[in-house]
Every structure is written in structure tokens, then in C-alpha cells.
Design a protein around this nucleic acid. Structure first.
Lengths: 198, 198
DNA sequence: TAAATAAATACGACCGGTCATATTTTTTTA
DNA sequence: TAAAAAAATATGACCGGTCGTATTTATTTA
């Protein structure tokens, strides 16, 4: 009993540190040892929790995504009659967080798509499902906004959600090398503040 | 004389293979040995050509970018009175090429921005300059299209060029995990075929 | 005590980078 | 111009360290 609690505790810690280190140093740039040291788990124990580094990576992807889904869902639920405002508000929060981090890291999903999105089948599957969940939620919000009359009807919510996700990811890459939040702010303004408006 | 020719030959080969391997396996996922084997250059010789792996990476970035600048410039020069058409035509060619590669690799600039864009100062500088060159060229084309009346005037060419670059990069990431050209086609249609039009 | 889980250790392969030495190429000198 | 000296380039063995993983040992749990 106390053991399985510890096991879950270690697993959770490993996933949290995996998110941090993978996001800032990339998949191949981060060694297992580094993650294990950060959470004081012996090297030999790792394979009791995860099948391989690759499997671990796939789990980290899902673990990373969860809070974003939760956060966006909360905004949409509390938005009342302004789903578009909720989406803008959600992204504004992300921007604040990214500025806090001085534009380092960006988004684990984007970084992993670029680095291992086409070489690790396991992680590719995980990325597909994570991005789809996220995209679907944005699509839901945009569809609500369409019903509320704030977003144009002549483009599908799905198409706009995809465009938003993709432009956001590209803007995050620019942010990282320009060390500026201008690209991600521009992304929100261009799409949510202009192109999507009815 | 014949020696310095060989030197340039080796350098060029190393850069070419560097582009290939870095693009498909990432920076940390590619060892120097792998590149050296591919071009039959001994390990010890590498450091006669480049100061370090990091410096090499920065040079690879520039080497990768050159052909894209050339290709886009050519399209713009031959476009006559339809700069927007030239840009679309250019991206269509890129799409064909990406489909040929079965959506593997994507864009080295995007991949590197995500993986090492905020950890390697040398490569960050190189990425900044490469992306700026590319963005500026697109901006020039869009400004021409504005003068020709095919592109809206109420947004600056610079802003649109940035949006195009960013959305394209994000769409490439999606392409990699979806193994489909739909995202990049959608990018062109949404921006060049709709949002930018006057 | 038997089975299951955790931890320690061991493993070979590979990492980026260095170095002394060998070979050219270039420059200087006669 | 020919010989000698100096500088530049080429090379592969080798460095310490780290990689991801397998195997072995110790510890819990049932």
C-alpha cells in the first residue's frame, strides 16, 4: 500500500520533471540520468515505471497536455455568452506565463513535433492524440462563438481551430529565437481579433 | 591548390549531409560520426573545417536557407504583374517537394528553432538571420502584390509576411505528425487565397 | 516462504572533442 | 630558380563522460 503510493508519487515526479527538462532541452538533449537525479529516483528504478525512454516521452506528452485542456475548458465554461472572449482570455494567460519564463521552452508539443514527430512512432501517436484533443476543444469554443454571433460562419470551426493551433505553434518558435512575445501577441490579434471575427 | 579545392569540396559535402541528417534526426539526435561517415571525412579533419558541432550547426542553417531564397527570388523576378501568384506558385513547389519526401523532415529552421532555438546562442543568431532574410523576401513580394492590387492594403506587408512564415512553420509541424499535406495546403489557402486578398 | 517490486550495479556503444604526428602547401632565402 | 624553412592542413587513435538498457541483488508484500 505505502509502496504503491510511493510508486505513483515517483511516477508523477518523473513525469513533471520530464516535462520541464524535455521542454527546455529537447528529447535527445535530455538524458534519463538528468531526470532521475532531479527527482531522486535511482537509475535502475526507471524501468519499473516506464518501458523505455520513448514510452516515457509519450506519457510525458499526455501529462503535459492535461493542464492546458483543463484551463481552456474552465475558461469556456465560465465564459457565459462570450466564447471568443474566453479563448482570447485563455491565450492571454498563456502569454503571461511565457513572458514569465522569458520565452524559453515554448510548447512541448511543438518542440516534440519538430524533433521526433516523424521518427518515433510511439511519440507520434501520442502527439496526434494530444493535438487532436486540444484542437477539438478549441473547435468547440469557436463553434460556440459562431452561435453567439462573434465569429464568422463562412469558415468551419474546425478549419479555424486548426489554423489557430498551427499559427500559435509557429509563433512560439519565432518567440523562442526573437526572445519576444510580439509573435504570439500578433498571432492572437490577427486571428482572434480580426480574421475569425464576423 | 588542389588541396584547398579538396577542402572546399569536403566542407560543402559536410554541410549538405549536415542539412539532411539534422533535418531528419534533429541536432542532438545526429552524431558527428554519422555525418563524417556519410561523406568519408575522418573525425580529426572535422575540426579543421568547423570550430565545433555548434558552429557547424550555425553554418548548416545558412547553407540550408540559401536555395529557398534563390528559388523564391526567381519566382518573384519572373512573376510579371502577379507577385501573389508567384508566392503561391513557390509554396506549391514546396508542397510537391514535401509530398515527395513523404512529409518527413519538414523545415530545418522550424525544427531547430524548437529544439535549440533558445539553448544555443550561436545557432539562435544564425536562425534569426536566416528567418529574417526569408521573411524580408516574402515581405517584398507581398508589398509588390499590394501595389498590384491583389493583396489588401490595410495590413502591412511585414505583418502578413510574419504571419505567413509562422503559420507555415506550424503547419509543417502538423504535417509531420499527421503524415498529410492537408495542413500546409490549408495554410496557403487560408492566408494567400483568402485572408491576404484585397 | 514465494512472488513481486525496487534498487544497485554492470554493460557496451557512442558522444563531442583533443592531440601528436604526418603530410602538404606556401613562403623565404640564396 | 632551387633549396630550405615555415605555415597550414590531414589524420586516426584516444580522452573522459554519458547514453539507454539488461542483469543481478535486495527489499517488500502476500
Amino acid at each position: 500500500m505505502s509502496k504503491s503510493i510511493k510508486k505513483e508519487f515517483n511516477r508523477e515526479n518523473l513525469l513533471n520533471q520530464g516535462v520541464n527538462l524535455f521542454m527546455n532541452q529537447g528529447y535527445h538533449g535530455t538524458g534519463l540520468q538528468e531526470i532521475l537525479d532531479a527527482v531522486n529516483v535511482p537509475k535502475g528504478s526507471f524501468y519499473n515505471y516506464f518501458g523505455s525512454k520513448e514510452d516515457f516521452g509519450a506519457d510525458v506528452i499526455q501529462h503535459y497536455t492535461e493542464p492546458f485542456i483543463t484551463q481552456l475548458t474552465a475558461h469556456l465554461n465560465n465564459s457565459g455568452a462570450d466564447a471568443l472572449g474566453a479563448i482570447r482570455c485563455y491565450f492571454d494567460e498563456l502569454i503571461v506565463e511565457l513572458e514569465k519564463n522569458e520565452f524559453k521552452g515554448g510548447c512541448l508539443l511543438g518542440n516534440f513535433m519538430g524533433e521526433i514527430g516523424d521518427t518515433s512512432e510511439v511519440c507520434q501517436k501520442s502527439l496526434q492524440s494530444a493535438v487532436k484533443r486540444y484542437r477539438d476543444l478549441l473547435q468547440l469554443g469557436l463553434a460556440q462563438a459562431q452561435q453567439q454571433g462573434t465569429v464568422r460562419l463562412d469558415k468551419s470551426a474546425e478549419e479555424m481551430a486548426d489554423l489557430l493551433v498551427n499559427t500559435w505553434q509557429g509563433a512560439l518558435l519565432r518567440m523562442k529565437i526573437e526572445k519576444s512575445s510580439a509573435p504570439i501577441k500578433q498571432c492572437c490579434q490577427d486571428l482572434l481579433g480580426d480574421y475569425f471575427r464576423s
